[in-house]
Design a protein around this nucleic acid. Structure first.
Lengths: 223, 223
DNA sequence: TGATGAACTAATCGCCCGATGAGTTATATA
DNA sequence: TATATAACTCATCGGGCGATTAGTTCATCA
């Protein structure tokens, strides 16, 4: 059962030493490694997760194949399985929202009711324009329509993070419903500006969007 | 729209002789017709489109297979191809927005600036709660994150239908941008209420939503 | 230094997908 | 009635998918 080594011959072609310095014999430049552990320190695991986030963000869950992720990470597909198990569980990890998010939102909610709408819009845009948070957010919103876990995460984010942050500022009748509506406005903004890419909204600068959209959130905060 | 799919009872119960090697050919109960045109008038084409709309609305473009649509319509998969060609072109037809929509939106925009926000929200909810318009809208929004044509349709709807309707009422600086923001709010509402199913928003009654959300649209209309 | 295990690739499996083509039966036309 | 055409199924194909297995190379540590 062993000895499939006939195939292996391909790899080596010269036969002789394949030593550590092997760079010469191994791997075409930029191409794939020919098998076995790579020398030096390894950051591959993170590279795969980054690639996954980027792919999921760009095309959503269904349209993203593990092969594509693997290719983007410069790695064989089965290594993705090796590190993350199923596609589903990789997706879960890719959805993990950076800790930064609750903080930024909560900070924006601080400072009283006055102009909190503007602050929330600005904070939201900041998160979406930040390259370290954007892929996860994009993945969440883009896949929420199609994948139950992403939808659940979106709900959870809307309630846990947003509603909690707003709880001191949105008070009175139907406070929870009104928090929902604030979340609704922010998700709508992400949808149209970053996913549907509706113009001129998508190209408008932050200040302009804040100026017009802030008061709309404010209207709901104040009930 | 009701009794599509007369397939079941009638035909196979009758057991139409089906010459030839008949034998077990008489299919299982509730099973499919064994080939050849069905007797009587045919509504199959529409049944397939309805099934497609329902499936696309429920799971989006990628996750919906033609086999599933065919099954929902009580028909062989290749008949779907026969009538609609590729999956893509079937999807296009399923996206076709009922003529009713522009009318309803335009009607809501009539009547001056005062309380136009409330009227727009109400019109929007009416469309989403109407079973004849809902599947197409759901398909559009649900697939917009993942399918370029759906995204284009969403943009087009946001501009052509909404911006046009609002053009007399949203005036002044950045009128187009502000129309975008009104569309943004409505799409956000659809996302959270009908797709992410965020509670208590999803279960709130129309009047309540109109009462709280209307003023938020109004804030943007008035700039 | 030798053994254990982690990182990595190659090959392949079974499944479901969209699409096609051939064959069967009803309706429409003349 | 003869012929054409539309409606309908069945069988099948090539391909991409997620997943698994076997085997190779490197790192670590007793």
């Amino acid at each position: 059962m062993g000895a499939m080594n006939g195939i292996g011959g391909v790899r080596e072609a010269g036969g002789t030493g394949r030593g550590r310095t092997g760079a010469k014999a191994v791997a075409v430049a930029g191409g794939k490694h020919a098998g076995g552990r790579r020398p030096g320190e390894t950051r591959t695991r993170e590279a795969i997760l980054d690639a996954a986030r980027a792919c999921f963000a760009e095309r959503g869950f269904d349209a993203t194949s593990l092969r594509r992720i693997a290719e983007a990470a410069g790695v064989d597909q089965s290594l993705v399985h090796h590190f993350y198990g199923t596609k589903e569980s990789l997706f879960l990890q890719a959805l993990e929202v950076p800790l930064k998010m609750p903080e930024v939102i909560a900070a924006a909610a601080e400072g009283g009711r006055e102009e909190v709408g503007e602050r929330m819009v600005r904070a939201h845009l900041t998160l979406w324009d930040d390259l370290s948070t954007r892929p996860a957010l994009m993945t969440m919103v883009r896949s929420a329509s199609v994948h139950r876990v992403a939808a659940a995460r979106l709900r959870e984010t809307a309630t846990t993070i947003l509603a909690d942050a707003l709880s001191k500022v949105v008070t009175g009748d139907d406070a929870v419903l009104r928090s929902n509506l604030v979340a609704t406005q922010l998700v709508g903004l992400a949808m149209m500006r970053y996913i549907a890419v509706l113009e001129p909204l998508a190209s408008a600068d932050t200040d302009t969007v804040v100026r017009y959209y802030g008061p709309a959130l404010q209207a709901i905060v104040e009930g």
